[in-house]
Simulated assay, not measured.
Amino acid sequence: MPRKAAVTSSETPAEPRRSTRVASLPKPEEPIKKPAKKSSGEKRTASDKADAGDGAGEESAAKKAKTTPDDSEEKDQLKDDEDEDAPQKPELAPINIGDSLPDITLKNEKDEDIKIAELAAEKGVIFFLVPKADTSGCTTQACGFRDSYPDFTGLDYTVYCLSADPPSAQLKWQTKKHLPYPLISDKKRVLITALGAGKNGKTARSHFIFEKGGKLIEKKQPVKPAESPVLALAFIKGLSEKHS
Rank of each mutant, 00 (worst) to 15 (best):
S240M: 09
E109M: 05
E118P: 00
E122N: 15
S185G: 08
T105M: 06
A14L: 14
K237F: 01
A46G: 01
S19V: 10
D81C: 03
H243S: 14
Y149H: 15
S10F: 13
E109W: 03
G154V: 02
K199A: 07
W173M: 10
P90H: 09
P131H: 04
V7Q: 11
A121F: 04
H178T: 14
V223H: 04
A169Y: 02
G238Y: 00
P90D: 12
E241P: 01
G201W: 06
I116F: 06
G144D: 04
T12Q: 12
K4V: 08
A65I: 00
L239P: 08
E118L: 11
I192H: 02
D103Q: 13
E73H: 06
A204P: 00
C143Q: 13
E91N: 15
A61G: 05
D165P: 09
G137V: 09
G53S: 07
S19E: 09
S136K: 05
N96W: 07
K34F: 13
I192Q: 03
T203H: 02
T153R: 08
Q77D: 15
T135P: 05
E112F: 05
E227G: 08
A164L: 09
R21H: 12
T67K: 14
E118A: 13
A36Q: 14
I32N: 11
P167M: 04
S163V: 09
L191W: 05
L171Q: 11
D186E: 03
Q170V: 02
G196M: 07
A164R: 05
L179F: 06
P16W: 12
E112V: 05
W173P: 13
K132H: 05
G53E: 10
K107M: 14
L155C: 02
V125L: 02
L106F: 03
P102T: 10
E218Q: 14
R189F: 12
T12N: 10
S40R: 14
K212C: 02
P150G: 08
Q174S: 15
E112Q: 12
S10Y: 13
F235G: 01
T67V: 12
D81G: 02
S206A: 15
I184R: 05
K75S: 11
L239R: 14
L78K: 13
T68A: 15
K34C: 10
P222E: 05
